[in-house]
């Protein structure tokens, strides 16, 4: 029985054709390589450097890049900037990824429910999405992070809580258009449960847009974490993150510009890479490109 349904499904969201299209997308490849290198550096880097990211040495403060073994210089407490950059990368990338997973999960759930069920439930859910979207996201993030005790987990939750709406909208639209397709009708006639149809039949077909949106959400989550931590509301010291490394760097802009330039460059590289990948996926999966 399921075989019939399976046959009547659309193609899988990922197949050799999309794979080929993605691989021939140069930017996406570059993005993949950059993210791989960055992740590797953040994972292995701290083991290769002679300094600990938390070790304070006031005598060595404000050393410019390439002072001795401080390849990227030191910060105002004399901590090795390279070591901190890699440790910060772990945190920032982890927060970005986790926030993406969480917000995609919430967004997908809400979107599928609203799109498939429709009716008053759908309307309520989508009005709530509209309501959340009418807020400046920075307001919600700042307000929530002020209300909750800041920790990497909390920041992840806060960022996720304020970035799921986009996914919800995309999924809802997609599901609504898939709802009346033959394979769904067939499933319904076969007496499959609503949950089964929603998550086993419809969702796989809406995977393309979700994947693209998720990739772009990582990029946005990294930027958001950076800004919130830059303002001092995010990741707390001594734990480094790319954002909180920039906090205070403004003060030393004239005397120690590398403190501002290096972490910012890391953020830009990471975010650019995810945007490249997202762009590649969009082309490969043939998703309408309307959310930048």
């Amino acid at each position: 029985m399921t075989a019939i349904v399976a046959n009547s499904r659309q193609e899988r969201w990922w197949n050799s054709r999309t794979a080929h299209r993605f691989m021939s997308h140069h930017l996406a490849l570059i993005g993949m390589v950059m993210i791989a290198v960055l992740t590797l550096a953040c994972v292995l880097g701290p083991y290769l450097l002679p300094y600990d990211s938390l070790h304070i040495d006031l005598r060595a403060r404000f050393a410019p890049p390439f002072t001795g073994h401080h390849y990227l210089g030191t910060d105002p407490l004399g901590r090795d900037l390279a070591a901190r950059l890699f440790m910060a990368g772990r945190i920032s990338l982890l927060v970005g990824f986790s926030a993406m997973l969480l917000s995609t999960l919430i967004g997908t759930l809400v979107g599928v429910l609203a799109g498939y069920r429709g009716g008053w439930l759908g309307t309520t859910l989508m009005r709530t999405v509209d309501g959340f979207l009418s807020f400046p996201s920075i307001f919600l993030v700042l307000a929530l992070s002020a209300a909750l005790k800041p920790s990497p987990m909390m920041i992840t939750v806060v960022i996720a809580a304020t970035s799921w709406m986009e996914v919800a909208r995309i999924v809802e639209a997609e599901v609504r258009s898939l709802r009346e397709r033959e394979f769904v009708q067939a499933g319904r006639m076969l007496g499959l449960s609503g949950t089964h149809i929603m998550f086993r039949e419809i969702l796989p077909n809406a995977m393309g847009p979700i994947i693209v949106a998720a990739t772009l959400t990582v990029a946005r989550a990294i930027l958001m974490e950076a800004y919130v931590s830059f303002l001092g509301y995010g990741i707390q010291p001594p734990l480094p993150s790319w954002g909180n490394m920039l906090n205070g760097a403004q003060q030393y802009l004239g005397t120690a510009p590398w403190l501002a330039i290096i972490p910012g460059a890391a953020i830009t590289i990471a975010v650019t890479s995810f945007n490249f990948i997202g762009d590649g996926l969009r082309d490969a999966l043939d998703v309408r490109g309307d959310h930048t």
Binding site: F230, I261, G264, I267
Partner: peptide
Amino acid sequence: SIPTFWFGLV
């Protein structure tokens, strides 16, 4: 992809 606040700082 560039963080606006960082671009401003630079």
